[in-house]
């Protein structure tokens, strides 16, 4: 399993050193931290946008299969049996799910066992001495799940017992420290690798989790669609009322991305002053639409103007243009910002 980080890169390399053919698998849940926001934001477009998992696979000289698990993953986020970490990250259930999917894929494609870059004690929830066996068991992979970086301090797996791989050449990394990994990378001559802060997905991000929690609360259930979770990555989100929120583009790239949703959301923009493109998520009558229009005016170039024209295009086909006074900062309560 290739995440794009250093640990799974090293784990793969360790097994390749034993002359074993390895292919990579990577799961796309919709929450993964990839180049999305960079791809959307125009000012970020010059930044490196490479997909780390693909890049790692290329460095290792292995094939990489990226699997779309967006639909199936919903149940993991909505009903995690083992609960959440410090934000809405269901790490333990997530790891179990991914290893299960990897195991199924391995069986279907004629592979003998699974390798992950997990290290005992590295992560507070999913990589603890007591939770790593839970992943092996609940995923159904059992002793076909090999963690080469910590193998020597874990019970021998089937590939080790059968001599398919040499346990002696595996490692005993333990704890949060990164020094052994960095030394091993050095030994293999790997110098350029991603060092993910926090976790591998947006669910470990406090602000993102707060926006997801808000979405669930506003809808009265804990469902979500792929577009919902993508939109949580874009723009300013302000909720003036429990019934609706306004998603306001922060720059040209985000405006352009939000425009892609114009057939599915009531949307607004100003024809009189340059400024954001915005979507209304929820139910909004004329009064709420006016509040949204005043917000659009506030975040545009007409923020100091007396009146700003705002076009409102409803999903049901009603189009109108109204003139509004931009909201002042003092008129926007802090708790509108999600």
């Amino acid at each position: 399993m290739i995440s794009g980080g250093l640990d799974s890169m090293l784990a793969t390399r360790v097994i390749q050193e034993q002359g074993i053919h390895v292919e990579g698998i990577n799961f796309f849940t919709g929450f993964c931290v990839e180049g999305h926001t960079h791809a959307i934001r125009r000012q970020d477009q010059k930044k490196q946008k490479r997909n780390n998992a693909l890049w790692v696979a290329e460095q290792l000289g292995i094939k990489l299969h990226i699997i779309d698990v967006i639909e199936e993953y919903k149940d993991i986020v909505i009903n995690p049996k083992h609960g959440y970490g410090s934000n809405l990250n269901p790490c333990l259930d997530c790891k179990g799910f991914m290893v299960k999917k990897a195991h199924e894929w391995a069986v279907e494609n004629g592979f003998d066992f699974i390798i992950t870059g997990e290290v005992v004690g590295q992560r507070p929830m999913s990589q603890r001495r007591d939770t790593m066996p839970v992943i092996a068991r609940e995923s159904g992979a059992n002793d076909l799940l090999v963690r080469p970086l910590s193998a020597k301090i874990l019970p021998p797996t089937l590939p080790e017992r059968e001599g398919w791989i040499d346990r002696e050449a595996l490692f005993d990394f333990n704890g949060r420290g990164r020094r052994p990994q960095i030394a091993l990378a050095e030994r293999y001559g790997l110098h350029d690798y991603a060092q993910p802060a926090g976790g591998c997905c947006f669910l470990t991000d406090a602000q993102y989790s707060a926006k997801l929690a808000d979405l669930w609360q506003a809808r009265g259930n804990r469902e979500y669609e792929f577009d919902d979770i993508m939109l949580l990555k874009v723009g300013r989100h302000l909720r003036p009322d429990p019934g609706f929120k306004v998603i306001i583009g922060r720059e040209e790239g985000e405006n352009h991305y939000l425009e892609g949703y114009r057939k599915r959301f009531t949307h607004l923009f100003s024809p009189s002053h340059p400024g954001p493109f915005a979507l209304i998520d929820g139910i909004a009558g004329p009064e709420e639409e006016e509040t949204a229009a005043r917000l659009v005016a506030r975040f545009g170039k007409g923020r100091d103007a007396d009146r700003v024209a705002v076009e409102i295009h409803s999903v049901d086909g009603r189009d109108r243009t109204i003139e509004v006074v931009p909201l002042s900062d003092a008129e926007i309560p802090q708790d509108w910002y999600l």
Partner: peptide, 28 residues
């Protein structure tokens, strides 16, 4: 339309042994 594809699709092709014959970019 995602500029990331300019990087990712060729990378994916290289590791799977496919060949990129042509890449063009015009108005996003």
């Amino acid at each position: 339309t995602d500029p990331g594809t300019l990087h990712d699709i060729p990378a994916w092709c290289r590791i799977h042994g496919h060949k990129v014959l042509e890449t063009t970019e015009e108005n996003r």
